[in-house]
């Protein structure tokens, strides 16, 4: 028994070191002033971060990524929650069909999708190539599976059908019942799906590079370009980038456990 515990501790530690070491090294490099022949850096500096956060190109790139992701996310939240709700409530026969099409983005590799999109949208009737809208569209499609699953699970968890019926019998129109009863109760699920989608979008490189690479520098493309120029600076970018994703994941986890706790309480009370 004691041996086993020792072994598992060893395995976990090894895995932890394996995962953390590169990150730690990157972090060290991002705050190193001079580091060539020693195990640890000779001197430290925060200059790379200062340079990064004062670089207008970096800030613009962050702004662009946020803009594109936000547009895609908002469009997805609004359209998907209504679509999934309507199908769940009134067209249950279409549910399998909807589930099948929402899985397509998983099946199509990013490169294939990007090349296809460029082909379709570079000549009439709709020309989107080179504009941010082609990326917004691609991002919208990319996050559909996550949004769909999240929203559908929330609807099931709260038994949205029964809640709608109860609200309608009490005199609420369908619209009021949705806005006052269903929407507030699936909001937790929607926020979690949106955050998950967001963390996927800011990590996405293939689509961004292929579709708008030259004309619209997002954080991903900026990072790619900096990698070839300055190791310290690109390390700082990676760490900044990682911190953002970490914060989002932490927020998701927090919201997730809050959501689960509510469910648990419900079960305990019943």
């Amino acid at each position: 028994m004691k041996n086993k515990r020792w072994l598992s501790l060893l395995v976990v530690s090894a895995a932890f070191i394996y995962l953390v070491l590169p990150l730690a090294a990157t972090f060290m490099y991002s705050i190193a002033k001079e580091w060539s022949h020693t195990v640890l850096p000779v001197s430290y500096t925060l200059d790379w971060y200062k340079e990064l956060f004062t670089d207008s190109r970096f800030l613009a790139a962050v702004g662009r990524t946020l803009t594109v992701s936000a547009i895609a996310l908002i469009a997805s939240v609004v359209t998907m929650s209504v679509t999934v709700f309507v199908v769940y409530m009134y067209l249950p026969k279409l549910e399998r069909f909807l589930q099948a099409i929402t899985m397509i983005p998983f099946a199509v590799p990013g490169v294939v999708a990007a090349v296809g999109l460029i082909k379709v949208y570079s000549s009439g009737p709709i020309v989107l190539s080179g504009t941010i809208w082609i990326l917004v569209g691609a991002y919208y499609v990319l996050i559909i599976p996550y949004m769909y699953q999240g929203i559908r699970n929330s609807l099931r968890t709260i038994d949205a059908r029964r809640l709608m019926e109860a609200a309608e019998i009490l005199g609420a129109s369908k619209m009021k019942a949705f806005l006052q009863v269903v929407a507030p109760n699936i909001m937790g699920g929607i926020i979690i799906s949106a955050l998950l989608s967001f963390s996927i979008l800011i990590g996405e490189f293939v689509m961004a590079n292929f579709l708008v690479g030259g004309s619209y520098e997002t954080i991903q493309i900026y990072l790619m370009r900096q990698l070839n120029q300055n190791g310290h600076l690109s390390s700082a970018i990676v760490i900044a980038y990682f911190t953002i994703v970490l914060m989002i994941s932490w927020l998701m986890l927090k919201l997730g456990t809050r959501f689960n706790k509510k469910e648990e309480n419900k079960e305990n009370a019943a």
Binding site: L163, E165, N185, K266
Partner: peptide, 8 residues
């Protein structure tokens, strides 16, 4: 309703 259907 059997499942109460209270608004959570």
């Amino acid at each position: 309703f059997q499942s109460y259907a209270l608004f959570p």
